[in-house]
Design a protein around this nucleic acid. Structure first.
Length: 305
DNA sequence: CGGCTTTGACCAGCGC
DNA sequence: GCGCTGGTCAAAGCCG
């Protein structure tokens, strides 16, 4: 996208509103604009510039994350848990609400058009056909539909954090401006379209940036590999280091900072509105542990299990 | 043998 | 229109 030597426009705080606070974040938290301070303070956030900078990631990597205009905030916050939705339907429904500027949540293509649906692989496209068709799987002309994402940073020595779900790696790419490759994972559940990207921060190699896309439509499988809770907690058999993650919930429009010190229940600086939204979506602040790491991370609206 | 990772190639989107 | 980059595919190989 940008040149290596060219300072990332996203990192340029003097730039305009293209900069967003959350790595994955939304247009709500603008840097370098009046919007920023007003909205942040409205949410009860009181970020110092340095802190904000510290929290920020390279936005260019997350530019495709759903953006939520502040005016749309109220409508997006109570992204209710759609417990009854089918896997693909749930994903498609969410996906349909974004990307397109129209943001009309009533997309009739809900059940059929999600390009992220399993059929993409199993049926058509490159799947069973001999390499006759030049296109490698994706239907041509069909827009890739992005599902809501959220990202969080975790100080951890292991790249792939155990989160209770099983993932299949389907790709790895070198990323621009980073010596570390980015890995692409997909949920092994055939009906689940959730993906995640894992990469290390180029600025702080000890930080793992995990980006989830989509919504699980099933429960965790427990902790299959090793049977213990998240690797970073049990790493080396002890609770070291005290993990700190920064969460960015573009869809929820709030951020949460969690200290992993035994319990992950500590939340700081959660905007009041967001807390309200959370309260609406989840009856109990104490999530059942069978949700695994994700259970405590994923905003209620993004879970569907 | 099934599941998973690796890896090179392909494709779409975006900025210039 | 072109080039760059991110994202995905799928064949091949590895491993339990």
């Amino acid at each position: 996208m940008d040149d290596n030597d060219n300072p990332d426009p996203g990192n340029d705080f003097s730039g305009d509103s293209s900069w967003t606070l959350g790595a994955e974040s939304d247009s709500v938290y603008f840097f370098g604009s009046d919007k920023e301070s007003s909205i942040l303070s409205e949410f009860g956030w009181n970020l110092q510039p340095e802190e904000a900078h510290h929290r920020s990631l390279e936005p260019e990597r997350f530019g495709d994350v759903e953006r939520i205009e502040s005016s749309d905030l109220a409508g997006r916050l109570p992204l209710a848990e759609s417990s009854g939705l089918e896997c693909s339907a749930a994903a498609a429904q969410i996906g349909s609400a974004e990307k397109a500027g129209d943001a009309s949540t009533s997309n009739p293509s809900v059940s059929s058009s999600s390009s992220e649906d399993p059929p993409e692989k199993s049926t058509g496209s490159g799947g069973g056909k001999p390499p006759e068709i030049p296109s490698k799987g994706r239907k041509k002309g069909q827009k890739r539909i992005r599902q809501p994402r959220f990202a969080f940073m975790t100080k951890s020595e292991v790249d792939h954090l155990e989160d209770g779900y099983r993932w299949r790696k389907y790709g790895q790419k070198a990323v621009k401006n980073s010596p570390f490759p980015r890995s692409y994972y997909r949920c092994t559940n055939s009906k689940c379209t959730v993906k995640k990207r894992v990469e290390r921060s180029s600025e702080d190699p000890s930080i793992v940036i995990t980006t989830y896309e989509g919504q699980h439509c099933h429960h965790t499988v427990g902790f299959p590999r090793g049977g213990v809770i998240s690797q970073e907690v049990t790493f080396d058999g002890r609770m070291t280091p005290p993990l700190t993650s920064h969460f960015y919930y573009p869809d929820m429009s709030f951020h949460r900072e969690v200290s992993h010190s035994g319990s992950m229940a500590q939340s700081h600086q959660v905007p009041a509105q967001a807390r309200e939204a959370r309260a609406l979506a989840e009856p109990s602040p104490q999530l059942p542990t069978d949700e695994g790491l994700l259970g405590d991370m994923v905003p209620p609206g993004m879970r569907n299990g």
